[in-house]
């Protein structure tokens, strides 16, 4: 297997998808909001397609606005169905995201015919073509556009988590205490969902709308099996995310198949390993502990 320069760009793009996902995923797992994240990642699709139809190109800003607002709309709609209509929560999630996703697919299959956006892309993205869409500033090539976009999103997410670390931490672990000391749980709920929708949009081109969920959950869940320290969990999660991006890409090109699919497969494999072997919270942790004590 020989790697060319383009492969490194694709791998880098994979890592840049994995990092913010791994960070936000930790919050989703601990807040038990994974399925809402799943819903958002499906539901940004109509936003992406609408932004694309209106501007007729894959410009970053309209995409982020269009899909970001769709993500917020999803969160709002789920809350509305759950609290006002009094539909049970799992059903609210199911009804909302399937509906929005269906609208997205209909828009794609009926009105849009373009290389950037088609049914396959919706499902598993197109990491391999990322190196060929180059950015030019003043006639100089500055590397693939997607790298710049993803890099920017990375910076935003990192800054968000860094600056508001305390607020996010408290609302995650003890929402009622947060409210008592004057931190709005609702505000941070929506802020987090906004961040998730932004990341879903940015990752859409690379890994598609559905596999983002795996990038969100798998590394975070793996890290959650290894530690009780939240900062360590964030770090481990990012590590697992990057590892699955790189190994997954290699797996995919050796099988000549979808890069995103490969990454997710590896992420699942890592989770499986840790799930079986984790010394503290794994499947055989009790047996392992007694083994170590005996030895």
């Amino acid at each position: 297997m020989t790697l060319i320069a383009g492969d490194y760009w694709s791998m880098l793009a994979g890592c840049l998808v994995a990092i913010p996902c791994a960070i936000l995923g930790c919050y989703l797992v601990l807040r038990r909001m994974v399925m809402i994240g799943d819903a958002i990642s499906h539901a940004v699709l109509p936003g992406i397609v609408l932004a694309f139809m209106l501007t007729d190109k894959m410009d970053t800003l309209p995409l982020l606005i269009g899909a970001g607002s769709l993500g917020m709309l999803t969160t709002f709609l789920i809350e509305f169905l759950h609290r006002k209509v009094r539909l049970q929560e799992d059903a609210s999630i199911g009804v909302t995201f399937t509906w929005l996703f269906a609208i997205g697919v209909i828009l794609v299959s009926t009105f849009v015919s373009n290389v950037h956006i088609d049914q396959e892309c919706v499902l598993y993205g197109d990491l391999v073509n990322i190196p060929f869409d180059l950015m030019e500033i003043g006639g100089k090539e500055m590397g693939p556009v997607a790298i710049w976009t993803l890099g920017l999103v990375n910076l935003c997410v990192l800054a968000f988590v860094w600056i508001f670390y305390r607020q996010l931490f408290i609302t995650t672990f003890d929402p009622s205490f947060a409210v008592a000391i004057g931190i709005s749980a609702t505000l941070w709920h929506y802020a987090l969902m906004g961040a998730v929708s932004m990341v879903s949009v940015a990752s859409f081109e690379s890994v598609g709308a559905i596999l983002v969920v795996a990038f969100l959950v798998a590394p975070a869940a793996t890290a959650y099996l290894l530690t009780d320290n939240f900062k360590l969990m964030l770090g481990l999660s990012v590590l697992f995310g990057i590892a699955s991006a790189i190994l997954g890409y290699l797996l995919a090109i050796s099988l000549n198949s979808s890069a995103a699919g490969g990454m997710v497969t590896v992420a699942g494999g890592i989770f499986g390993l840790v799930f079986v072997l984790s010394p503290r919270y794994g499947m055989f942790s009790k047996k392992l502990r007694t083994l170590f004590k005996v030895a």
Binding site: A214, A220, A221, S257, G261, V264, T265, G268
Partner: peptide, 24 residues
């Protein structure tokens, strides 16, 4: 394990689907 049910659901859903995409 101590993974909550929603995370387990999301994980299994997306990983199985990812494997499916790889195979497809």
């Amino acid at each position: 394990s101590r993974i909550p049910e929603d995370a387990a659901t999301g994980l299994v859903l997306s990983v199985f689907f990812g494997v499916g995409i790889l195979l497809l």
